[in-house]
Design a protein around this nucleic acid. Sequence first.
DNA 1: TAGTAGCTATCTCATTTTGAGATAAAAGAT
DNA 2: ATCTTTTATCTCAAAATGAGATAGCTACTA
Lengths: 289, 289
Amino acid sequence: MQLKSLRLLMAVAETGSFMAAAKQLHTVQSNVTTHIKKLEEELGAQLVHRAGGVRLTSAGLALLDYAERLLAVHDEALALFKSPENAAGQLRLGSMETTMALRLPPILAAYHANFPDVDMTLSTGPTASLIEKLMAGQADGVFVAGAIDHHRYHSLKVFSEQLVLVSPTPMASVPSSEELLTATFLAFRQGCSYRQRIELLLASQGINAVRVFEFGTLDAMLGCVAAGMGYTVLPRITVEAHRHRFGIHTMELPSDIANIDTYFVTPEPATWSPALARFVDTLRQEAKV
Amino acid sequence: MQLKSLRLLMAVAETGSFMAAAKQLHTVQSNVTTHIKKLEEELGAQLVHRAGGVRLTSAGLALLDYAERLLAVHDEALALFKSPENAAGQLRLGSMETTMALRLPPILAAYHANFPDVDMTLSTGPTASLIEKLMAGQADGVFVAGAIDHHRYHSLKVFSEQLVLVSPTPMASVPSSEELLTATFLAFRQGCSYRQRIELLLASQGINAVRVFEFGTLDAMLGCVAAGMGYTVLPRITVEAHRHRFGIHTMELPSDIANIDTYFVTPEPATWSPALARFVDTLRQEAKV
DNA sequence: TAGTAGCTATCTCATTTTGAGATAAAAGAT
DNA sequence: ATCTTTTATCTCAAAATGAGATAGCTACTA
């Protein structure tokens, strides 16, 4: 059974004539005859009355019902891929905790407002496991720290964060080695790229091992810093958004350690679903990159 | 876009391999490649990741969603026509008032029990207008008095009725001409074949015109006969079913006038929809013809 | 009832598409 | 590195398709 044949059947039903149907679909009448005949052979039933003006038989009407449904789905699928204002289906995103907390809400909101037919799922996790998810095909795109150098993947720089040292008391300068040695650090669980920066900071001071507490959420971490439990390293914008709720202080870090870029990593653009392509559009607009 | 291609895409998604997909659908791997490639060109998006084991891209997954819907509808349509135990869609029947009242209820009930997915509509009317409806394509089959001699239509004899003269008082024999001349006749509206029999009866007595009242429903008519308003002519089985409710009496008529057959008339069997074909099956069983 | 106008079925043929096999190229496994 | 498995490409024969020409059918008209 060919979609073409069904479309011809619909045209015949509409126009009540093989010639008019042919004209409507820009073909010739003999082809209409052939297609309808083939359908009739395939289904073993006469679909069209040929006495005088043609009319669908009851078998034809029964098939017409399916033809309409079939072509509606087909046209919908085609429209999805053809017109850039369409997006539907599902979109599986992944993001780091901090990006999710501060950068994504307005973007997700804007996307959902424009493309309400997309079912979004967003999971958070550290950079390493997000990349794994992406490569396993369990996510369509992930927000991670740092670009991926792989020709099958595409990295779009979307945010630039400046990391700052967060402490419970004001500081004049980056703490000395001695101070750091005795200090406690709070960080997200292993795999988080910000934690790697903490270790980088410590390494730059010649310190290899130090006590590090692990947290799962931002609020818990900042609460503990404010309570004097220790230091942490976070994006400036993240800290500033929460500063009014916690009695915390920040200190600039050396730029090689401080500057970290967030990328949106996906498979090659050619493989993007319409939903994903529209998401990247939204991202470009909202993040202004 | 070809249904074949979509089916291949589904097989690829399922098996995760072009070769396995080819085997599953009894074709060769090169054809799978070609079909998928054609889909990709048509939609302008890569549908399948070719790194190592093949996997659908997010665009592929989006299309897969439509492919599944499309093929489900297609298979449903095909199953409808292929397997004789299926029937769906609509069935538009027409029937004479008397047949509807007495013969059809058990048949319609049996049909509906077996094929609940068919939307039945039944309209009643006199033979003439039912035939018109059928010919105009507004009905799929009609129960009428007498066969149709037309090579585009098919008449199936389903019931044999014996017409009797119905009167308010007992009769020893068919009323004489003088009695008939002064009598009033009650009948369905013009077009009803039973009414033609009344006129035939009168003509056999050399009477051309007589007073005839027209009624739309059986109950009204029988009620008026019982009340002594006049005579009527109806199938014996119809009268017997109502005799206990009305004080009426019957009298046999000459067999050439009395015997009348009810036919189920449809377009040619080749044009029957599955729903109609199953109805005729049911009819043959229930009516035992 | 013959004629005519309008439509559909059939036939033909050039073109395109399809399907299958063979082979080359690429990716993983040992 | 070699071998195995899988996909892409090429080729060719067979089949399907689309368009035109023509014959046949139906309904309407005079």
